[in-house]
Amino acid sequence: MRIVLLGPPGAGKGTQATILADELGVPQISTGDIFRANVGAGTELGVLAKKYMDAGDLVPDEVTVAMVEDRLAQADAANGYLLDGFPRTVAQAEALATLLDKAGQPLNRVLEIRVPDEHIVERLAARVTIVDGVETQRDDDKPETVRRRLQVYAEQTAPLVDFYSRAGLLRSIDGVGEVTEVTERALTALRSE
């Protein structure tokens, strides 16, 4: 299966992506991992992306799409994959569709994990890390920061829900509950016609 996973920050995408990829026997492909691998290996695309990142700029879509294209061409992705964190915009989704159409391998499903904003704010505010025996909260988990991240998601990424719904690929599930409950909902949605 070729799957895109959507959902706001704090919806549990990373947790579900790992479980679902293992359950379905496909690699979990994260754009963060792709960037780190290309930058770390000093690839041509990695060097180009690093220039933008070092300047504090977003890496242009064409560079991101080229990195994703390169990753999807690797042997472990031949029988499918789960994309986590890409696409983030309709422009990226259109570029991905063009790339997959050329390869004759369109997406099978897009899974959206829905969680109410206030639940996410509470969930992330409760998330702490223990460093040297002291509980600390990540700066990006503070309520005001989470609300801003949710606003950015609503503006930039949420339009993908309509894009993929129109394409007939979208399946949405409730992301509130125990991890195993959410996983079961996800697997049922992915396997539905």
Rank of each mutant, 00 (worst) to 15 (best):
D141H: 05
A126G: 15
A66N: 08
G25S: 12
V68H: 08
V128C: 11
G168L: 06
D76C: 09
I173M: 06
R123P: 10
E144Y: 04
L6M: 09
L124I: 15
I173C: 02
R71V: 05
E135C: 09
T18G: 08
G25L: 04
D139T: 09
G80T: 07
P143I: 01
L187M: 12
A73M: 05
T64V: 11
Y81N: 12
A186R: 09
R88V: 11
V182S: 06
R88I: 13
P60E: 00
V121C: 03
R185G: 01
R109F: 10
V146I: 08
D132E: 15
E155G: 08
P87Y: 08
L187E: 07
Q92T: 14
V128T: 15
L6D: 04
D76N: 15
L83P: 03
F163S: 09
Q151T: 02
V59E: 00
V161D: 10
A11H: 01
T31F: 02
V26I: 15
V115G: 00
T183V: 15
L124K: 03
T18Y: 00
N108I: 05
A91N: 13
D61I: 02
R138F: 06
I34G: 08
R171N: 05
L169W: 10
V4S: 13
R149S: 01
T145R: 09
Y164M: 11
V63S: 06
G175N: 07
L99F: 07
N108L: 03
P87L: 04
V134C: 12
E181A: 11
V134W: 10
R149N: 06
E112K: 06
E112M: 07
G56T: 03
V63T: 06
V26T: 12
K51A: 04
P9R: 12
V26R: 14
G104F: 05
E135K: 11
T18F: 02
P60M: 01
E94I: 12
A95N: 05
L99K: 11
A73F: 00
R2M: 10
V128D: 09
L72W: 02
G56P: 02
P106F: 00
I34M: 10
L111N: 14
T129D: 13
S165L: 09
V59L: 00
A11M: 02
V176H: 00
D61S: 11
L170K: 01
I34T: 04
D139C: 12
V90F: 02
R36Q: 04
A21F: 11
A125F: 02
L150H: 08
I34R: 03
R191Q: 13
P106L: 05
D84E: 05
A167H: 11
M67I: 08
D132M: 12
R71C: 03
L82D: 10
A91S: 13
V90P: 09
P143Y: 00
E181P: 00
E122Q: 15
D70L: 12
E184K: 13
L83M: 04
A189H: 12
K13C: 08
D101K: 06
Q105H: 14
E118S: 11
I29H: 01
A17F: 05
R114G: 06
A37S: 12
L111H: 07
V152Q: 10
V182Y: 01
I130D: 14
S172Y: 01
A93C: 14
V90L: 07
D132T: 13
A97T: 14
T43E: 15
I3G: 09
E135L: 04
N79G: 13
